[in-house]
Design a protein around this nucleic acid. Structure first.
Ligand SMILES: [Zn+2]
Ligand SMILES: [Zn+2]
Ligand SMILES: [Zn+2]
Ligand SMILES: [Zn+2]
Lengths: 140, 140
DNA sequence: AGAATATTTGCAACTTAGTTGCAAATTAGG
DNA sequence: CCTAATTTGCAACTAAGTTGCAAATATTCT
């Protein structure tokens, strides 16, 4: 019996014509379940009994970013954070909020940000990302 | 004969009541001259004959960030990038543009971005940063 | 289903970015 | 110029991410 999560992950990988492997399935499922951007280490920690080498996870993430299924979130932290792109519009990711007190980061998935112009002084703008700092509800 | 740059750097450090040291002067001057965010390594490479340990540069940057003179820019790159905060408003940095073709990053110092609300679902927003991806004038 | 081909995986070793502790050197202030 | 406070350089270290390569697995073709 395949779970809904399993089917979704399968579909996501197939949609990008990627080899369907156990490692990729697990990484995508971890990202599907997450409500915020995760690092390699966090993903590894959410794989249950399944274990994959960190190299595999890094390479999977790189592949998923390349085909546009995953976006990198910019967070005040040494490690890179990744999340599925399904909440993002073509030209803009949802914004992220990092609390300067507790350090936690939240996705403001339904906050509307006015998009910038597509052209600005010779620059051709394809994507836009916004980051907030301040106090989260728990710390305010 | 003290240069204008020297005076500016001196003034910046004094304004924050920081010890005026050769290392800090050099770092601030490098940032003053730069037209884009720099990494520790780039700063070190722009110090001329003067040499300071990378630890000193990292610590100087950390100090300058803490007192608000320097901001960290979020760039698709493994290393942290820093720039002087003098072009930023209280609540918002100028946006940065990274070219997906050549990889270079530019400051869009005079591009106006509409500021987000100060409050959103319990979040208290203090600062906002925007990042663009696309093609720079040279690559478009 | 089985063979041929293309792609991915794990391992070990490595690189790069950034941090820590501590003694010596430098700075500010009187 | 003396003293106390702060910063610096060094060496050693941690953490994040990358590389090459042989073995394993996935897809395609018959
Ligand atoms: Zn996104
Ligand atoms: Zn908080
Ligand atoms: Zn998010
Ligand atoms: Zn800038």
């Amino acid at each position: 019996m395949k779970s809904n999560l399993d089917l979704k992950a399968r579909q996501i990988l197939k949609s990008a014509k990627l080899y369907l492997t156990a490692g990729r399935m697990s990484v995508v499922q971890a990202l599907l379940k997450a409500d915020k951007p995760l690092t390699q280490e966090q993903i590894a920690g959410r794989l249950g009994k399944k274990r994959f080498d960190k190299v595999t996870i890094y390479r999977t993430l790189k592949t998923l970013v390349k085909v546009g299924l995953v976006h990198r979130a910019f967070i005040e932290d040494r490690a890179r954070h990744f999340e599925l792109a399904h909440n993002c519009s073509e030209s803009q990711c949802h914004p992220h909020f990092t609390c300067t007190n507790c350090g936690r980061t939240h996705c403001l998935t339904d906050m509307a940000i006015p998009g910038a112009k597509k052209r600005y002084k010779g620059f051709l703008i394809h994507r836009q990302q916004t980051r907030f700092e301040g106090l989260c509800p728990a710390c305010a």
